[in-house]
Amino acid sequence: MACLVEALVLINAASGVMDKVHEGVKNIKEVRKARKVDGPHDIVAVVEIEAVGEIRDALMNKIRNIEGVKETITNLIIS
């Protein structure tokens, strides 16, 4: 069994499109869980990939290209 890499992605959405961004994030195959949250970020997603290098593809090419995503912060889960 391969050792998977997990990351938390904190996402800020443009005003009025949080629901649309949330739906887009949930539909990405690497996203295991996505929740709308209260606080400085709008959405928190748990991303699961096979190699750290895939974070760029999961994040840059998929999450950041969802219309309405303003900013993301990615945190690797280390334990």
Rank of each mutant, 00 (worst) to 15 (best):
E50T: 14
S15A: 11
E30Y: 11
E71A: 01
N65S: 05
G39F: 13
R64P: 15
V5M: 06
N12C: 14
A13Y: 04
V25R: 06
V46Q: 13
T74G: 06
H41Y: 00
V52C: 14
I66K: 06
L59T: 07
E54C: 10
I11M: 04
K36V: 00
R35D: 00
I43P: 00
I77Y: 03
V5E: 01
V5G: 01
K62D: 12
G53R: 04
N27E: 11
A45N: 00
E54S: 15
G68E: 05
V47G: 10
A14Q: 00
I49Q: 11
H41D: 10
V21I: 05
V52E: 13
V44I: 14
T72R: 11
I63N: 08
R32V: 10
H22T: 02
A2H: 07
T72E: 07
E54H: 15
R35F: 12
N61Y: 13
D57E: 15
T74P: 10
K62E: 14
A7N: 05
A58H: 05
A14V: 09
K26E: 03
E50Y: 15
E54D: 15
K33Q: 07
V31G: 02
V69N: 07
H41W: 09
L76T: 06
K62P: 13
I11C: 09
K33T: 08
M60P: 05
V69W: 02
G24N: 00
R35M: 07
T74Y: 04
A58Q: 07
D42L: 02
I11A: 01
N12K: 02
D19M: 05
P40V: 03
I43D: 04
D38C: 04
D42E: 02
A34T: 06
I63W: 00
M1P: 10
M1Q: 06
V17Y: 08
D19H: 04
V31Y: 01
V25T: 05
K70V: 09
N12L: 04
T74N: 08
I63Q: 08
T72Q: 12
A14S: 12
M18C: 01
S79F: 06
K29H: 14
D57H: 15
G39L: 08
I55T: 06
V52F: 12
V21F: 00
L76C: 03
E67T: 08
E48R: 08
A2E: 13
A14T: 02
I63V: 09
N12H: 03
V44L: 08
V5T: 11
E48F: 10
H41F: 07
S79I: 12
V9Q: 02
K36P: 09
A13G: 01
D38G: 09
I11V: 14
I28C: 12
N27I: 09
E30I: 11
K26G: 06
E71V: 07
K29I: 13
D19A: 14
E6A: 08
E50A: 15
H22Y: 11
E54K: 13
T72D: 14
V69E: 04
L8E: 10
E54M: 12
C3W: 14
N12M: 11
K70S: 12
S79K: 09
E67Y: 03
A14N: 06
V52M: 14
G68K: 04
A51W: 01
I55A: 15
V21P: 03
N61Q: 11
E67W: 06
I28E: 02
N27M: 01
K20I: 02
R32C: 10
N75P: 04
K36F: 02
G39W: 08
